[in-house]
Design a protein around this nucleic acid. Sequence first.
DNA 1: TTCTGAATGAGGAAAGTCCCTCATTCCATA
DNA 2: TATGGAATGAGGGACTTTCCTCATTCAGAA
Lengths: 214, 214
Amino acid sequence: MSLPFGPYHAVIADDHAVVRDGLRAILESIGEVEIVGEAENGLEAISLAKEKKPALLTLDAAMPLARGMEVFVEVRRWSPETRIIVVTGFTAKGHLADWIAADVDGLFLKSCKPDEMRRGFELILNGGAYVSKSVLSILEQESKIPSLTSRERQVLHLIAEGLNNGEIAERLSVSAKTVDNHRTNMMSKLDVHSIAQLIAYALKEGILDQSQQL
Amino acid sequence: MSLPFGPYHAVIADDHAVVRDGLRAILESIGEVEIVGEAENGLEAISLAKEKKPALLTLDAAMPLARGMEVFVEVRRWSPETRIIVVTGFTAKGHLADWIAADVDGLFLKSCKPDEMRRGFELILNGGAYVSKSVLSILEQESKIPSLTSRERQVLHLIAEGLNNGEIAERLSVSAKTVDNHRTNMMSKLDVHSIAQLIAYALKEGILDQSQQL
DNA sequence: TTCTGAATGAGGAAAGTCCCTCATTCCATA
DNA sequence: TATGGAATGAGGGACTTTCCTCATTCAGAA
């Protein structure tokens, strides 16, 4: 496949050199793509994208210094022409749904076959959007887990940061009793019986990512 | 550099295809190495290593179905000749120290420069052991965080699984009061003030890995 | 309009956490 | 041999979580 309006400038953002190399190989196998920079943390990714305004940015969802979503928002603001492709290791439905909702141009799991990635990247460079099959199959699964309301997610986030009911109540300007009710409802929805298990759930859902904590 | 007794058979184990590709490129850049298999989960890694008894196994620390450490133990048992190189995304001191204690042949972060990895792999194939500089610098840092005793880590593990003091006590055949003491000691050592924060710490330390929970 | 779901708030009881203190045993090592 | 660290166990008090019930408000959908 040859692309119409190349060469396209691309930036790769991932904190793992070995992953950057894998992505570099895929991008280089597409004609008309020139890699103009690599970032190994979130802030570097933001400044590199602002500076180079590349046609394509491959973005890791979990990086040090700035989270993938923060990078995404910044790059969209300062370089709206850049096609942003998220490559994530998290397979949680909620996490993937967040990226779809953010209207990312491409969404792939790190476990994706390089072949599918390459074809997806080409489609995206041609102006399309592409979400990998593995992501779609996760999103299409009817989850047995009832989904949480946005307020509940908000509370879950703060619980996971180590705040107790009273502190969360203050932060959200509601009563501690309300926070307690949200927590209780979540635990009953999710069929867990302790804060520890609730946090384990939050992690699995990618609501927390382990590099950001403490 | 050319290696004396090649060709060496190698197996790559990592759940992310893009990482496998990066490692494959590094291994292929070493003469005398032939990749005889790839595994995308822990059980596959164990059975592949048992079957092929490769000279070299690159092992991801966090994979579905069986954790890196379980794979390591099994492969050491069934194919003691295999040189095992762990490539991990976790940068927590405790996690890295665990691998050193397990006497792994090589230990690298995923953020390692491919060049250093290649040179390290060559040394290991020559019969040596190699721990990457970035790992050493983490291990050498005097951590302000006092380290936990093994019993405390054990308790932390069970807390993180969502068990309460009583359940943990039963599991370890000690009194609930003892468990409570261990938990209290840890929280004071680590200067955290809730189970939620304790779990956040456990995650950061790689004591839990998010794919195993719930 | 009625009904449902979401967010808010409260009361109350049982259980568990959190954080002191103190004591005993064992083991390593200075 | 003495000192200290680790594991064990206990008492007790303050606070928090956990889990019920119930009620109000509001928005959107049937």
